[in-house]
Every structure is written in C-alpha cells, then in structure tokens.
Design a protein around this nucleic acid. Structure first.
Ligand SMILES: [Mg+2]
Length: 941
DNA sequence: GCCCTAGTAAACATGT
DNA sequence: CACATGTTTACTAGGG
C-alpha cells in the first residue's frame, strides 16, 4: 500500500544508488582503534543500566568488546552471517564496518539489540541507528547505519531506532515520508513508537525484525537465532559502544552521565570511536540529552531496571560491566529495591505509553529548537491573553495554545506540561473557573499582578533604595546650591505602609555636580510632563510616585551604566544623547511607581469611583447570601457551607487607612453572614486585617479540600439546600464569580469520597462546613484553619483596570518630604489642576499602549537574551556609550505596565517573603485581602 | 552560605 | 483500567 504510493513522492533521480558504497565508515570500521575500548567502564553513563538488553546476560561479551566487534562500530556492526548480503539490494550499510565484525564475532558480539533482516543481521550497538536510502553524493546519507534499498519510496533518512532513556526502551521514529509498517500496521511519517522484542518492521520493501536480547535469548543463546548465528544474548553491555570514550571511558561512571552529556564530551567521545559509522553524533547527543531530560526514570522503571540489573548480576555475577546506572537511576533504584525476581516479572508490564513523538533536532525547525526564554507563568499568561475566552481555557487548550504560540513545545518532550500544571496551581495569577465536566477553566486573575508586583516591588524597592539615597543626596545639594529657599528635606522613607524599605539615611556625601543637578531637574520636568497624562492622585501620593519613579529611573540608569561599565555620569550622558530613552525609562518607572505606591497605600486603583459604589461591589455584596436559589450558577451549592466569605470580607477593609475602600468594604460588610450561622465566625465588625484568620471554628474558613472540584452540578444531590441549581450554565455574572469563589475556596462538600463518615453526615445538611473539615482532614495534613491564599480564586474578572483615573483618595498623611522643591510643588499643583479633566480614557489608552509597548520591548529584549548587549528596537536603543539594559528595568515593570489593573490589595503588613507552608501562616492579611478583594468586577457579562 | 524564584519530576487524589 | 487534571512535594540551579 503505502509503499507504492510512496515511491512517487520521493525524490527523483537524484539518487543514485550505489548501494553499497559504504561510506567512509569503513574506516571506522576499523574497529580496531576504538574497539578495544573496554566498554565496561566507560559507558555507563548513558546506558541505562537496564540497558536494553539484558546486559547482564552474557558474560562473555564484555570482553568481547574488544574484539572486533564493532565496538567502534558502535553502530551496527552488521554482521551477517551469511554474508554480506544484501538485503535487497545493497544493504550495504556500513557494510564495511559491519562487515568487519562479521562472522565470527558472533560469539562476542555485544549489542543492545539486533535487526534481523532477511539476508543479514545488524547489531545495534549504539544508542541510535539511522536507516534509509544511501544516496551518493548526499552526505547526509553517509550517516546511515543501514541502507534499506534504492527504492525511492524509502527516504534517505527513513527511520531511526534509538534508545529512549526516559522510557527505557528502544523506539522507532519514522522520519520517512512514506511511513513504515510496524507489526503490519502502518505508521505514518513523524511517529515514534516503542519497539518490543520481535517487532516486525517494514520499510519500503525491506522487512526486518527488531530483536532484543531477552532473557530467554540470553540463556538460550543461540536459540533464537536459529538461523542466524547471532546471539543477541551476547549483547552485553553495549554501552560501550558509543559512549565510552574509548580511552578513558569511564571517568566516573556515575557522573559520566551528566558530564558525558555535555556536547563536547559527547562529541569527543563519539568522534573517537566511531566517527565513521554514525554520524549521528550531534543528533544523537542532543537526543540523548533530550531523552534524558525528558524523562527521568520513574520509580517503577527504575525499579525494574534495578531489578533487571540485579537479576543480571545474579545471573552473571561477574559482569560488573553493567554499567553503573546514572545518578538518577541510582537514586531511584535505591528507592525501590526490588527483588530481582519481581523485577523480572515486571518487565512484562506493558509499555503502553505511546510516547509522543520524539523529534530529532533535524526534524525540528530551527527556530523552534530553543526553549522560549519565558517563564512558564509568562507563557501561560500570554496564552491566556491570546486565546482565553471569557470564561477561561481548559488545561488542554492551554497546552495547545502554548504550543501554538511557542512551537517549541510541539517538539519537545512532555515535561513542560507538568510544569504548566504546576504553575497553574501554584501561581495565584491563574484562577480556576468552574466548568462542566472534569477539570476547570483557567483564567488570568485580575490581580494577577499582585504576584508579579510583589516580586518586582521587592526588586525594585531594593534598587530604589539606592537610588533614593542618591536622589536625596542630589536633592540636598540641589537645594543647597540652588537657592531653593526652604528645603527641609528630610528623608523619611515613609510610605504609609510599612515596608517600604528602609529609609535611607541620606548620605551627605554626595557632591553633586552641576550636571547632576541639571539632570535631576530635567528628570523632574519630564516626570511632570509624563504625569500630566495620567491619573492624578492626591498630592502626597503623587509626590511619592514621582519620587519613586525618579529614584527608579536613576537607579536604572546607574545600574545600566554600571553593567555596561560606563563611568562618569550616565544620567547626564543619557539625557544629552538620548533623551527619548530617558523618557521611556521614566514612563516605565512612573508606571511601576504608581503601582507600587498605590498598592502600598492600599489605594485602589480601580477606577476611581471610590465613593459611589460601582455595581460590582454590590454584586459582591449580594453574593454572600447563601442560598439563593435564584443564582443560576452551578456552584450554588457552595453557598451553603462556606460562610467564610463574610467574615473574611469584613476583615478585609484594611484597618489602616480609610482609604478608598469604603465602597467595597462597606458593602461587603453589609451582607450578613447568612448561611450558616456558624458559631464562631461571627463576623463581627471589621477586624483589622490582622492575621488572625477566621477561625475555623464553625464557620471558619477552612482550607479547601485539595482535590476535586466541586462536583459541579452534581452536588446538588447532596445538598438539598440548594434546590435547583442547575448545573451547567453559569453565568459569569456576579453570581458566578462569587459562587465560584466559594467554590474554590471550599471545595465542594458533597461528594467527597473519602470522608465517609462524618463528612457525609454533615453533608446532608446544609452546613457544609463540617464536611469540609472532614474532608480536609483527609488530605491536608494539618487541618488547616484557614484557607490558603489560593482559594480565593475569584473568578471575577476585572474590568477595568488600569490606571486609575481620577484622583482618588486622600491621604491624611502629611506629605513626605520627598520632593520638596518648591518648583516641583508648583508643578505638581499645576498638574493637579490639569488633571481633573477627564482625559482619562485617552490617557488610559495611552497608558495601555505604552504598556504594551513596554511589554513588547521587554519581550524582545528577553528573547534577545543579551541584556546588556544591545537593545534592539530603536525604542530602547541607547547610545553606544550607555548600554543600558533597560530590559531589566522594563522587565521588572512589565507586568505593571501592562495591565495594570490594580489590585486593591491591602498589605498592611509587610509580607514576609517566605510563605510558610503552614496553613496558618499562610493566611496573612495579604491573602485575605487579596482574596476578598472587593474590587473585582466581572468582566463581561 | 542563605533566601528565593523557577523549573522539573513525580507522587497522589480524583474525575472521565 | 488508562488517562486527564490538579495539588503537593522534593530537588536542583541560579541569582542576589
Ligand atoms: Mg492558581
């Protein structure tokens, strides 16, 4: 079938066949040199102990290596007994090489496996062999280990048989357009499948069988081969073949693996031995690496391997040759000491897993060979931004989306998916949205900036401190020199909120030059100018923001200069030579500073409407009510139990500044905790956000069950409470958000499997709380008292984001001194005036664009990789003199720039950096605040 | 050397 | 029962 068709496709005449012409290999064949290598020692690393073959098996083998065997030939020494034959035509393959070891070696042949062709046998002594059609003049075909014939239906490189370390087995990759038949089943181009002992393979007109040295084989040696003399059994540790560097070989076997992986080494090693034969080298190496990376041996496998090894050992006590397993292997192995017997039995275990296809480097478009230089969180975020529907994306969609956006993931092994899942779970930026069926939909959390912000803030703050110090110093001088009349500059660091990093004691040291002053002045002006288009905060806040931005800018420039090794006064230079760049930096800094400051202050950036309640809040408020039949959302049932919301809500309002929050807080508070009047939970008034989490007590929030989502609709069953909740449809609207939220927070009570007893009972009733607790007990170690931060997955999507427009709040605090300059103050005032106008939208748009721009830049720069080196994009280009790496800076603020939404998080406390795992600890104010952040509004809808 | 973030793998739990 | 999906853990590597 296929074959025929195939033919055409293939190339035309180009090919000449000479069949045989064995390439240079012959030389390689020179078995001699390399061969001798005592494989044993060496190899190890790579070879999986389990080695495909029964390593242990043949005793002899080991030594044999030396022999002729191909050792070097690593590849394949084909031997044939009979002769050289040829398969069809020419099977030359390496004829030579193979040949050489031919006949006699039989006994000693070591190989991982053998390919039983009609006319000859090819021993697989390397980790990978290439099969295809040898074409004269086509160097690429020189790499072939086996020439399958001249049929054009056979691609020059048609198939690859290689050992997959991850799966610990040999696999066949069909890289020929016309596919192949494996055990009579057609396998199309591009697929990779595992090879089992005796797997029949047909490529073009050529048939052969893949044979592993099974135990049976081993013992019986010759049995199998009845016809052929080969005894696979002999294969012993083949590892030798390649890896070993011939010479030294071993170098710590154990380590070797890793080390060997290094390209260089690998190459080196290969060169030696078999240069001729395989050329696989590069690919091979990479593949090895890939495979290795891709899959680590799993326990079972490891166990099996171990067992096998053990068995082997037992069998042939002597063969120490067994290569020492790789580190990983070792580790694993120890975990599972399995009796040899057991191990042996296991093997039969099916190896079902159809591995995804394993791509070889050459099969992957160059541009996709490199892993994108983005963090998983970024990848996911981008994916969601690009393809997320209102509700979100399922895991599978995310996988696809990422592959779509970053094709690299189409070609690499699957480990990344685990990382993606891990990220989704762990990263607060991603929230779950209920959906029918199995999993959840994932969406970006509005507040997803929080996370990043935190990080960035930290970083930035650190950087800023320095800058501030400098700034202050500068100011001082400035003031002094400039006749600014009264300057009282104290430097207080301040910030209403805590943390702001330490206040830098001003160093008086600075000696500012005139230039510095000018520069500073320039920056200030620019800042003011840039600020005009933005939302205005109260004066104090604005001042802080500007100060912060200024500090950031200075820090950035200095840092960049430092990185670039630039001396002198970079700021001045940059201003002179590339003012636009400075502006960029200022803009970014402004954005970052805005976020930072507002966040610290707890100012909700959310659209100004502070006082007036936006609808959103209202919704939220409503939500709390537990049973609302009306609520369509599936999650409904949730309501019943978790009362937590309420308390929590209350909490939320930060004690501190009476800031904007009013709306939200008040609202929230209102709704009484209807549902379960849990005992404890009384949400009395607002508690300061103190850490005291809501006690778990009756209504306390408990840590949600880890597993399982709420049985979406299903739940009802148990819970009588909610009458009709109909499952599916849930409107994203308010209800949904809330519901979900609860949902997630407390995962469903109902069905929980494990908890048979108590829980069940509880479940029946409305009060789910019990259930939860019960459930929890099961899984979570310590019954958490509070919910994790996560729970808060609010589904709410934000709507508005961005840069706050109008001026919001007010702070009571006295202004900081930071920018005292009278001039500056004046400018500020002007600004203030100007601002009230509503340019908001426009501004917003602008901001967004800026943000996007920034992001793009960042992205580009990231991709570029060289931070310092240059920044492409005119945008960021800096003069030659200064090589700023704006990347870093921008990168830091990227998030902020972007969406900006704002979270209203309140951080009263400083947050500790570490997040303790304990549940208790976890609930910090932060978390709470976040969780209950009111500001959310739903997206569409 | 410590602390943290990220990336990886994998064990487990659970739903399909 | 195999797989998909999520949640956690444990480790490792790198960067301040
Ligand atoms: Mg998450």
């Amino acid at each position: 079938m296929s074959i025929d068709n195939i033919a055409n496709t293939m190339t035309t005449a180009t090919e000449v066949n000479n069949a045989i012409a064995p390439p240079p290999p012959s030389s390689s064949t020179t078995t001699p040199a390399p061969a001798p290598v005592a494989p044993a020692p060496v190899a190890p690393a790579q070879v999986p102990s389990e080695a495909p073959l029964s390593t242990s098996i043949t005793p002899t083998p080991i030594t044999t290596n030396n022999k002729p065997v191909s050792k070097n030939t690593n590849i394949s020494s084909t031997i044939t007994d009979e002769s050289p034959l040829s398969l069809l035509h020419p099977m030359s393959t390496h004829g030579p090489s193979t040949m050489h070891s031919p006949n006699e070696p039989t006994d000693h042949i070591q190989a991982y496996a053998m390919l039983d062709f009609e006319n000859f046998i090819f021993y697989v002594q390397t980790m990978q062999i290439l099969l295809g059609r040898l074409v004269e003049g086509d160097k690429s075909t020189e790499a072939l280990d086996i020439h399958l014939g001249q049929q054009k239906a056979i691609s020059r490189r048609h198939a690859k048989i290689f050992y997959n370390f991850g799966n610990q087995r040999f696999e066949l990759s069909v890289i020929g357009r016309n596919g192949a038949f494996v055990d009579d089943l057609f396998v199309e181009y591009g697929l990779t499948l595992p090879l089992k002992d005796k797997t029949r393979i047909q490529i073009g007109e050529t048939h052969f069988k893949f044979i592993l040295p099974t135990e049976e084989t081993i013992p019986s040696n010759k049995d199998l081969k009845d016809k052929k003399q080969i005894n696979p059994s002999d294969a012993v540790n083949l590892k030798t073949s390649l890896y070993n560097k011939a010479p030294s070989g071993n170098s710590t076997a154990a380590n070797s693996r890793e080390s060997s992986q290094t390209p260089q080494e690998a190459k080196a090693s290969k060169l030696e031995p078999s240069k001729t034969m395989l050329k696989v080298d590069d690919d091979f190496i990479s593949e090895l690496r890939a495979n290795a990376e891709a899959s680590v041996v799993k326990r079972e496998e490891a166990a099996a391997a171990a067992a096998a090894a053990a068995a082997a050992a037992a069998a042939s006590s002597a063969t120490s040759s067994t290569t020492p397993p790789i580190n990983k292997d070792i580790k694993l192995t120890k975990q599972l000491p399995i009796s040899a017997a057991a191990a042996i039995e296991e093997p039969p275990k099916k190896q079902p897993r159809q591995t995804k296809k394993v791509y070889k480097p050459e099969e992957i478009p160059e541009e996709y060979r490199k892993k994108p230089n983005f963090a998983y969180s970024t990848l996911i975020t981008e994916c969601l931004k690009a393809k997320c529907t209102e509700r979100g994306m399922s895991l599978a969609e995310i996988y696809k989306g990422i592959q779509d956006l970053y094709p690299y993931f189409k070609y690499c092994s699957e480990g990344w998916q685990s990382s993606v899942r891990h990220n989704l779970s762990l990263n607060k930026s991603f929230k779950k949205v209920a959906k029918e069926g199995k999993g959840w939909l994932w969406a970006l959390d509005n507040e997803y900036f929080e996370e990043k912000e935190k990080l960035k803030l930290k970083q930035i703050e650190a950087a800023n401190l320095k800058a501030k110090q400098q700034l202050e110093a500068i100011k001082q001088q400035n003031q002094i020199q400039l006749q600014n009349q009264n300057n009282q500059n104290h430097i207080q660091t301040t910030a209403s909120t805590s943390t702001s990093t330490s206040t830098p004691p001003p160093d008086s040291n600075s000696k500012l030059s005139v230039d510095a002053k000018k520069a500073l002045s320039y920056l200030q002006q620019e800042l003011i100018r840039l600020t005009k288009d933005r939302k205005m905060y109260d004066k104090e806040t604005t001042t802080q923001i500007l100060t912060q931005a200024l500090a950031m800018t200075i820090a950035q420039v200095n840092q960049a200069a430092k990185n670039a090794g630039i001396k002198g006064s970079p700021l001045v230079t940059l201003i002179e030579k590339n003012p636009s760049h400075i502006t960029k930096i200022l803009t970014a800094a402004l954005n970052a500073a805005t976020l930072q400051i507002t966040k610290k202050k707890g100012i909700s950036l959310t659209p100004a409407p502070a006082p007036s309640q936006s609808p959103a809040p209202a919704q939220v408020a409503t939500i709390p009510q537990p049973q609302q039949p009306s609520q369509p959302s599936p999650n409904i049932y949730q309501f019943s139990k978790p009362q937590p919301l309420e308390p929590s809500h209350q909490i939320k309002p930060l004690a501190t500044p009476p800031i904007v929050s009013p709306s939200s807080s008040s609202i929230l508070a209102q709704p009484a905790p209807a549902p379960t009047p849990a005992p404890t939970p009384t949400p009395s008034t607002i508690q300061p956000i103190s850490q005291s989490p809501p006690t778990t007590g009756g209504g306390g929030v408990k840590k949600p069950q880890y597993y399982g989502k709420p049985p979406s609709m299903a739940i009802q069953s148990n819970q009588t409470q909610i009458p009709n909740v109909r499952p599916i449809p849930y409107s994203p609207t308010t209800a949904s958000s809330t519901v979900q939220r609860q949902f997630q927070q407390f995962s469903q009570p109902t069905p929980i499997p494990y908890t048979s007893n108590a829980s069940t009972a509880a479940s029946t009733t409305a009060s789910a709380s019990d259930d939860v607790s019960g459930v929890i007990s099961r899984f979570s170690k310590p019954p958490p008292k509070i919910s994790n931060g996560d729970q808060a997955v609010l589904q709410v999507t934000p709507q508005i984001p961005q840069p706050p427009l109008t001026i919001t709040t007010i702070t009571k605090k006295p202004l900081n001194d930071e920018f005292n300059d009278s001039e500056f103050n004046m400018m500020l005032e002007d600004l203030e005036k100007e601002h009230n106008s509503e340019l908001q939208k426009k501004k917003m748009q602008q901001l967004e664009q800026e943000q996007k721009e920034s992001n793009e830049i960042i992205a580009k720069s990231n991709s570029v990789e060289d931070n310092n080196k240059h920044i492409d994009e005119g945008v960021v280009v800096v003069n030659n003199d200064l090589n700023l790496n704006v990347d870093d800076f921008l990168a830091q603020h990227a998030n902020q720039l972007d969406t900006t939404t704002t979270t209203t998080t309140i951080n009263n406390n400083d947050e500790s950096k570490k997040r303790p795992r304990d549940e208790e600890v976890e609930l910090n104010n932060d978390e709470f605040n976040q969780d209950f952040e009111i500001s959310k509004i739903q997206k569409l809808e």
